[in-house]
Amino acid sequence: MPRRFSMKVILGMALILLGVGISVQVWPGGGSRALAEESTVIRVAGSTTVLPIVSRAAERFQARNPSVKITVNAGGSGVGVHGAGTRRLNIGLASREITLQENNRYASAQLNTTVIGRDAVACVVSSEIFHSGVHSLSKQQIGDIYLGKITSWQQVGGPDRTIIVIDKETHRGTRHVFMQYLFGKANARAPGARLVTGSNNEEQSKIAQSDSAIGMLSIAWINGDVVGIGIREGGQVIQPTLDNVRNGRFPIARNLNLITADKPAGEVKQFIDFLLSEEGQQLVTDSGYIPIHSPHAVSKVAGSHSK
């Protein structure tokens, strides 16, 4: 009697397992098909430099196209390129060019780049340091600070205070462009660093919190507490201003890129076209960057591997 009963239970359990297995197999397909009829989801993530433009644009685009849902997330340029390369994202955001290594790694995805605006990376310092007289540094000096050869602000004309050197996570677009400029190598090490930050937000707040920090930041993120300093080059001081980026004098300029696997199509293409339209380009300006159709082309783009 107990034996037969347990056989029933085994049978029942097997049936349940079978049911679970079948529903797991069927559910995702059925679910997404139902979803596709109602709305299209465009997944976007990556560089926190490009993010403000795209999230503003996404708001407007969704208001006009209720059937399209756009999710925008941060993470950094490396996350953007990786997401597009593995087709997890419909659009990856990158504030640098795709590296040769990445192009090889995601060869099957046929990565495609659309430039939506231009920006520059400034060397920034805590406001206390700026007000104590450090208004500009040479490339050599910044490089030595990041290498740990210069450790006190006194050595570059500031107060007798240790420099807090802020580095960024190695996949961040800003770091690629900045290191490319300083050392000619996007993946240069920075043994002088004291802190490592991720997003523009995080770096900005760490520098603002400190009274003796140096870091790298998109010029759109400069404010009263985090001051962009001039770069001394050939006896001149070049200030990190939009004008100097536009006329090609500021040396650390870059493109703001949207990365897609293959050529953009369908709703993704519509969204990218919106960003390239006059209205979309106005959002680029509003976010503190330079639209692509500005009167003067950017002459130098750092971080590009096309040699």
């Binding site: 993530a45 993470g75 990786h82 593995t86 490592v196």
Partner: peptide
């Protein structure tokens, strides 16, 4: 936490 999103399931 800092590096996972960049390399998710790859490489």
């Amino acid at each position: 936490g800092r590096e996972a999103a960049e390399s998710l399931g790859f490489d």
